[in-house]
Amino acid sequence: MARNPAITRYNTRMAAIMVVYIAGIVLASCVIDRDAPLGPLTITLALIPGLAIVAAIGAIGRFLTELADEYLQMLEVRKVIVATGFTLAVTSVWGLLELYSDSLPRLPVFYVFPLWCGGLFVGQIANYFWAGGDDDDAGVCP
């Protein structure tokens, strides 16, 4: 079967965004001293990976609208819903535990997006079981 053009475009966009994101993280980690005061340079360097995340969210939204096949679109939307529920559940429970226990390590907000991406994988598993173990129907985008 020919590769879905929407998936190809999504993968291309996401690969470019991830290059910027990783480069931004590496650059910020090398240049910014952890104890440095918040200044224009710190903010600018931190914004590079930050804006890459915003672009990644936009790419996911655009992928959902470009996916012409209604069934594949439904699978992807369900993955996003599962990922959102998963992230809300984990962060809410963890936040309450943090609130009532000083010994628990604080979860940096930075981890919310990677957690949500992990939730997409949970959504893919949910799709797989919903389809009765039919590998075809787990979803199309990583």
């Binding site: 096949d69 069934y71 594949l72």
Partner: peptide, 8 residues
Amino acid sequence: VSRQSVNA
């Protein structure tokens, strides 16, 4: 549409 759609 996709083959997955027909299958589903």
